[in-house]
Nucleic acid binder design. Structure first.
Lengths: 139, 139
DNA sequence: GGCAGATCGTTTGTACACGCATGATCGCCC
DNA sequence: GGGCGATCATGCGTGTACAAACGATCTGCC
């Protein structure tokens, strides 16, 4: 290995920068809904599932119980998600989307699509396809 | 656009997962030095530069002034970095690595290399090269 | 029925990451 | 030399992210 450690050739460093850049583009593209990428991901899954347990949702979007707890708290505070209970299992918090969530998610998805395109814009269409395929395999 | 919004096909979601995975692998590979990926990146650059201004270091490793301030505070608390002052510019904090930093960085770089390899291990050697090239272009 | 281990959600503590505001200092240009 | 915009480091507030510990509850197995 050479004497100079090439920090800028390491996956970790490049992933951190790419992730930061996308997050920044996402917040720019978020016209008025003001959802963070994390909140958006959680909300999309809640809408998709109609009814989910909190930790189960966390697993679907790669957030540990402590993290999803905070995210859900902010979504419920904004009236996008409601918490109910399963009488069959009194440990769980069952989440469901509100009407507001259904309305918001349509426009937010368009914003997310723009952020997606902007983040990938330095690559050609063919390169984007390759990149996404490889990135998926790293997950 | 289809009715089902495919969250798992979006760069942002995939980048977040890949970044999390690498961070986890990095902490596993960090035998005893107990540096986070962020702290490691900052320390590598300080060693590389011998003397850097705090914000200048932040720009080199993609951290804003508020973030690099906390990272440097933790590195100085561990005796890996010392803060001096430039009499020519009394606003700045000039950072330099300690002896301990030079000793630590050698073993830490080996750990980082292992984390790098582990994170990329789902891909073949050829795919890794392609992936890194594309990822660099997204920065 | 009752115990043991697993799972659920919460809390606490630490570490990034950023926007915004602030006070100190610098550079430049008049 | 004086003023003005830019830069430096810091502080506060908010939002991810995770480990560890906790009480509550469920499940399986005896």
């Amino acid at each position: 290995m050479s004497d100079a450690f090439a920090l800028e050739d390491h996956v970790g460093f490049l992933l951190r920068k790419a992730h930061q850049r996308h997050a920044s583009l996402f917040l720019d593209a978020a016209c008025d809904h003001a959802l963070t990428p994390t909140q958006f991901a959680a909300l999309v899954k809640v809408v998709e599932c109609r009814r989910v347990t909190q930790n189960h949702l966390g697993r679907k979007v790669a957030m540990d119980p402590a993290t999803i707890q905070g995210v859900v708290k902010r979504l419920t505070a904004r009236g996008l998600v409601v918490r109910t209970h399963d009488p069959m299992d009194r440990r769980t918090a069952v989440l469901a989307p509100t009407e507001a969530a259904h309305e918001l998610i349509a426009t937010a998805a368009a914003c997310a699509q723009r952020a997606h395109a902007a983040a990938l814009s330095p690559l050609s269409a063919a390169e984007q396809a390759v990149f996404l395929t490889l990135l998926r395999r790293m997950g």
